[in-house]
Computed example of a mutant assay.
Amino acid sequence: MAPALIHAPQPFITPGQGIEAGAGRKGVRRTPKSALAALTLAYTAGAGAVTTTHGEAAADPRDQLATLRRELPARVELVEGSYLKAVDAAHTLMTDFEEARRLRVQLGEEPLPAEQRIEWMEKLAKVRAAAQASVTTLEQVEALILKV
């Protein structure tokens, strides 16, 4: 099979698919701090598992607690980074819409079609509801931190 791949008529990576794809690539570039936290979680996940006679994985509670205590700082860091990115994205979105409104008025252009505006508002309403629910979750986490 290797000779067929070597002499294949089409390259596996075409222009625009490799590193030069830039912002069009899948995934989100993490800051080094978040990448380290993600790697920490990836390599510590599953530590402390014990196999029972039925082949099921059962964790020793002390090992499980030790694992959680090692992983929790990285998890807090990941959530912090995600929230900061979301806040920055929301602020950028607001400034972009402010600029678009200003330019539309300055140029005397018509507003976007109502369907488009309604669609965007519905999406943002769902996001806002999720954000408000996550605030409640974070408050519960804060209360649990005091008990760990």
Results as ranks from 00 to 15, higher is better:
L78I: 07
A129I: 01
L72K: 09
W120I: 13
L72T: 05
E99H: 12
G108E: 00
A133V: 00
F97A: 10
V50S: 09
A133I: 02
Q106A: 14
Q64I: 03
L107Q: 12
E71Q: 15
P73S: 01
P61S: 04
Q64P: 00
T51H: 05
E77N: 08
P111I: 02
Q116S: 14
L72F: 10
R128H: 08
A86W: 02
V135C: 01
R104A: 09
R69E: 14
E99M: 13
E115F: 05
L72M: 11
D63P: 00
E115G: 10
V87K: 09
L78M: 06
D63M: 11
A133S: 11
L124C: 06
E71C: 05
V50Q: 14
H54R: 15
E71H: 00
A57T: 06
E109M: 12
T136Q: 15
A129N: 06
D88V: 08
P61R: 07
I118E: 09
L124I: 07
T51Y: 00
R104I: 03
L68F: 15
Q132N: 12
L68P: 01
P113Y: 01
T51V: 13
A131K: 00
E77V: 02
K85A: 15
L107W: 07
A114V: 10
S134F: 11
G108R: 02
G81T: 04
V127L: 14
D63R: 04
T51R: 14
V87A: 12
V50E: 13
E109A: 12
P111A: 05
R101D: 15
Q116C: 00
R128F: 04
T67S: 10
R101H: 10
